[in-house]
Design a binder for these strands. Structure first.
Lengths: 347, 347
DNA sequence: GGACGTGGGAGACAGATGAGCAACAAGAAC
DNA sequence: GTTCTTGTTGCTCATCTGTCTCCCACGTCC
């Protein structure tokens, strides 16, 4: 209930002490020697007046605003942004920081990205989180370097900025292993056609896991399409039309898996009895609502947001040297979320 | 590329004038009389040094931070939040403001909401946007009143705070009209069981539109369930099992419509040939990806975010008196988004 | 006359703002 | 023709915003 325009000096007058003393008491300044009685007077005066500190003035003096900037791509179009923001917000709140958010578009010009960062800088944010909406290489605005910053879900083209990304390969391996463990020996992969790291990494995870299991590429067909429902449908039609069709299907993402569901339905194949399916992304809206529920690999967006914030704050407070972590991106694992789309193949 | 720690006084030294003059020039102070020559000197000095204003210091003096607080419910769990944020961010950016965002949970205690607002207040935000994730009545933290504020997607229990909400009734009417215009005369409604305004309003829109069309309640069955895919499925099974089953179905939301799709498929009913369906919400992930694409009613989240921000800034700048608008919530229309799930009924 | 216990004064942070001052010109009074 | 008045232009000084922090002051008791 902090009434605006109640300052430290109003508290000082009410408590009958100087502003210095109020500041000392309220901030628990270690070297200040003030009697318990006075401390009480100050504290209760502050309470009664509904005093709340003016963080601006504090910041001006201490050179620390307690604000972190977050520039996030495509806030509205993907649910991933929300999870990053949530992770960042909770981590920040836990340490007394707040988030200033600016949206940018994945296709925004470098100048516009730079203007976004500039706006954050003018507000004297203590650090900046730069979040992209899918794991890829981005060119960063130059002014980003003027405060500690961390990249979320991508790595910089130039390198040397701390970044946190998902373990695409590990996620793909978990997905394929789940199929393997259920007993499948013919497993197909429906991949994306975009040339992004995820495309390559998920494929690599798929391949190496099957190779290790002794399954050759004959039993591991791959079809690629645009990573949407329609693409998934088409790729699934193709892959399921093969002579020796796979009994397990790993899909690049949940949307493509949704397309695969439709393809299977049209072919009279029931999931999971005739075809086991695994997705990627764990988009609740899809994965949990498909019938049967889609087993999929979750992207650690919340965790990346929290990790990045945690370490950014450490850097701001001088507890960490980000440049040391900038050599290699930190990789967070992608856990498998089990639902009902996998079972043992008909022998 | 504003280097930090370059201040107005550095510019003053470089330009060979006083800081006052620099301030006058850079802010285009109307009453300041400064020669064009001096103005140029100042501006180019600022440019060269990469000067950027320190908004904190400005704010301390002017009592205006250029920051708006946005407390948003459940950022991560619904795509709606993202659209509100986007609308708010773009409107704010266009007028030189930035957003400070705090997440809260729909189920958070009043004390915790109050703490969120308090944090915003300590940062001296100029105004606050309070966004809930579904249109309902909320109890607001008391300290919200200390700066101009606008409610997004809800109305306050106490009333008298400016709010903007979607036109649920109009949206429902559009949905039903679309079915009517396609020639349907037996139209069912699958409703939500939660007691929220949307439930009542969509039902009212449904009823009045049909009554106006001369269709009695016999031809307009309603079934209610929890507003998820499963609930939609169950309600659809019931409604489609009726002797004279409807040929058109209006669903409370897209998730329930997704359940209806499944029910139809199981009954061998093809959409839209045997059953036309309309949803509500326009959740892209579902509506655009269902097969056939779901015709649905869009909620104006982006527009509400933008409207609220626009008017909040007007209030902050004294161009509007929010208390005048607080008497009745502003209602934004919900447009119908046509896809492929409606056609004429088989005669 | 130190040591100790208590507390206060005066910048500084970065910039905004309105009153005020110097310099000069034109017009007026003598 | 000199001095005074008045006005205008161009720019600066002092002060203010709310808080922190270094340094100093005052009184008391050994």
């Amino acid at each position: 209930m902090s009434n605006k325009n109640i300052g430290i000096k109003d508290v000082a007058v009410a408590a009958g002490v100087s502003v210095t003393t109020v500041s000392h008491v309220l901030n628990d300044v270690s070297y200040a020697r003030i009697s318990p009685v006075t401390r009480d007077k100050v504290r209760s005066a502050a309470e009664e007046l509904g005093y709340g500190p003016n963080r601006l003035a504090q910041a001006l003096r201490t050179q620390r605003t307690g604000m972190l900037g977050l520039v996030s791509e495509d806030i509205a179009t993907t649910p991933h942004a929300g999870r990053i923001i949530l992770g960042a917000d909770e981590a920040a709140k836990a340490r007394g920081y707040n988030l200033m958010i600016i949206n940018t578009s994945g296709s925004a010009s470098l100048a516009s990205r730079q203007a976004d960062v500039e706006a954050l800088l003018e507000h004297q944010v203590d650090g900046i989180l730069y979040a992209t909406m899918y794991h890829r290489n981005v060119e960063l605005p130059a002014n980003l370097g003027s405060v500690p910053s961390v990249l979320v879900d991508s790595v910089a083209t130039g390198g040397n900025i701390t970044a946190v990304i998902p373990d695409e390969i590990g996620g793909a391996r978990s997905a394929v292993r789940a199929l393997l463990e259920a007993g499948h020996t013919r497993i197909g992969f429906i991949n994306n056609t975009d040339d992004v790291p995820a495309t390559r990494h998920r494929l690599r995870g798929f391949r190496t896991t099957l190779t290790e299991a002794g399954l050759d590429s004959e039993a591991a067909p791959v079809e690629s399409e645009v990573s949407e429902v329609q693409g998934g449908y088409e790729a699934a039609r193709r892959i399921l039309a093969r002579k020796n069709r796979p009994t397990g299907l790993f899909c690049y993402n949940d949307r493509m898996a949704m397309g695969a569901y439709r393809a299977a339905a049209e072919l009279g194949l029931s999931i999971p009895a005739d075809l086991s399916v695994v997705g990627f992304d764990d988009q609740e809206l899809i994965a949990a609502n498909l019938h049967p529920g889609l087993t999929t690999v979750a992207l650690p967006h919340y965790e990346m947001g929290a990790w990045a914030t945690e370490h950014l704050i450490d850097a701001v407070e001088g507890k960490t040297d980000l440049t040391l972590m900038a050599l290699h991106p930190t990789i967070l694992s992608c856990p498998l979320v089990r639902r009902d789309s996998i079972t043992a193949p008909r022998q």
